[in-house]
């Protein structure tokens, strides 16, 4: 019935991909959307400049958690630069949704957490 809550999304929500933690990750960042209380925690293990493994922990609405599930699938094998170049539009295309501005924030939460984590990582280097 509902584009926003169509099967594929709900499948990600109920059975999220890449959920869990990575011990001793190269990049670790927690971020939240205080407006609705969505939270994600990102773990990345690198091999050179490439993302070897990426996982997340989190709780929140369908959109934020599904976005984390789909995004972490997508980013495996990508370089940090690829991630930094990823735009809001890229992400929304990836999830395949038309969202209202409030819900765009939910969808963007995992990507913004990853980007912030990369900034912290680069600063430490």
């Amino acid at each position: 019935m509902d584009e926003l809550y169509r099967e594929v999304l709900l499948d990600h929500y109920k059975n999220p991909h890449n959920k869990g933690i990575i011990l001793k990750p190269n990049i670790h960042k927690e971020d939240s959307n205080p407006l609705c209380g969505d939270m994600v925690e990102i773990f990345i293990r690198l091999k050179g400049e490439k993302i070897e493994n990426i996982t997340f922990e989190g709780k929140g609405c369908v959109i934020s958690q599904t976005s984390a599930s789909i995004l972490t699938d997508e980013l495996k094998g990508k370089t940090l630069k690829d991630v930094q170049n990823m735009t809001r539009e890229d992400l929304l295309d990836l999830i395949g949704l038309q969202l209202t501005p409030t819900r765009v924030k939910c969808a963007m939460l995992p990507l913004s957490a990853i980007k912030k984590g990369i900034i912290d990582y680069e600063a430490k280097k």
Binding site: D2, L4, C36, G37, D38, C61, V62, R103, C106
Partner: peptide, 12 residues
């Protein structure tokens, strides 16, 4: 039910 999901479905 997360409040945002409920509110979204209500909005529809």
């Amino acid at each position: 039910l997360h409040p945002h999901d409920l509110a979204e479905i209500c909005a529809r």
